[in-house]
Nucleic acid binder design. Structure first.
Lengths: 205, 205
DNA sequence: CATTCAACCGACCCATAAGTCGGTTTGCTT
DNA sequence: AAGCAAACCGACTTATGGGTCGGTTGAATG
């Protein structure tokens, strides 16, 4: 099964570089040759592994993107502590410019969501699904926070989750190369302010 | 100057229909012919009035979009009342699905911002500028709210404005044809919750 | 009535980029 | 070493869409 290994490796390289460039320039603004040239691969190689550009990107979404969202935004929620600081920390971390040569700016869900909305229902569906999983997990962790006495009883957990997600996605629209540090700081501060207001122990600022 | 009138009218029709379709399908996913067919106009007519698709869209941005942002998001702020309910009302109104055949979903700043970011620096610049004007106005109105005793003294007005804008832009990523009513309600509720927390009179929920 | 020019027409040009296909290379198996 | 299939190559096809250009129309002007 050496060939299967070779296959896997090439597909993996393609997906990795693809995500990197799609993230930089957008899906529709990136040609396959842009990616292929970087990897010194040919059209033939590409179509030997994927049946279309769309199929290729679905692969990227369902492997790499899902995985990153889990790692950055969902798994960190799985603790027994007060959920609010945990959520803050996960978002703060997800907005961090990539250390080394990892993905810059935590994540690009908003960009892809917007790009495929109205243009490709299938891919759009996969992306929305990712957001939805994130939301479900946020709601769960908020509800637990209520039970554990960290979050005020009156809070609408679904609404809070939606609000958190919206603000995070929106931040990614505002953060363009420059300006980021300040914006991120402001965002985190206000998020904390909001969290204080839904916390069970009404700490005054 | 009858001709100038004709010219104006055709350009106006082009811009109106253009905004409508660009908003529906996205700028890069809309061909000039898509628009021209709807208006029964030709390529020749188009290029008689605009020097390029880009020039055309800049026209749309600087006339129609600027105007709508002012009408929906900026001018409503110009009152002497407590700014917080006024802001809520403007956002609520801006997220309203267009009555009659007006623009659906209040506004599409986030979509265009995302689409042109990384693809067209010039247009991107104009759009960012609109957001920036909105932000400046929000900050001003929040500061006035502080002076007037509606907003707590400790609040970072710039941060709050950023946070408000981010959450609004993000909502537009989440609101796809279906689902909207519920999402909007949740958003407004949580926004109010946040506003309560930066209000001078700490009303408990 | 002739002239003129803004407004408009639509066939054409050309660059881009997805996808095809007949081939070549590579490396494992026998 | 021969055979064979997976992996890969790259010229080609095809569709799309922005932009061009030589023309036509129609209304105002003299």
């Amino acid at each position: 099964m050496e060939m299967t290994l070779k296959r896997r490796e090439t597909m993996h390289r393609l997906c990795g570089k693809g995500l990197e460039i799609f993230n930089e320039k957008g899906y529709y603004n990136t040609s396959l040759d842009d990616i292929l040239n970087e990897l010194s691969l040919s059209k033939g190689a590409f179509y030997h592994h994927f049946k279309s550009k769309e199929d290729y990107f679905i692969n990227i979404v369902q492997n790499l993107i899902v995985q990153k969202v889990y790692a950055l935004l969902i798994e960190p929620l799985d603790t027994d502590e007060n959920p609010l600081p945990v959520i803050v920390e996960s978002l703060e971390n997800a907005l961090e410019p990539g250390k080394k040569n990892e993905m810059a700016y935590g994540f690009m869900l908003n960009d892809f969501l917007t790009e495929f909305n109205k243009r490709n229902e299938e891919i759009s569906g996969y992306l929305k699904n990712i957001v939805s999983v994130w939301e479900v997990n946020l709601v769960a962790v908020l509800k637990r926070g209520k039970v554990d006495g960290h979050i005020a009883r009156h809070v609408d957990c679904e609404g809070a989750a939606t609000y958190i997600i919206a603000s995070y996605l929106g931040m990614r629209s505002l953060m363009t190369e420059s300006s980021n540090r300040q914006l991120k700081y402001q965002y985190i501060q206000q998020l904390k302010q909001y969290f204080r207001s839904i916390s069970a122990h009404q700490v005054l600022a």
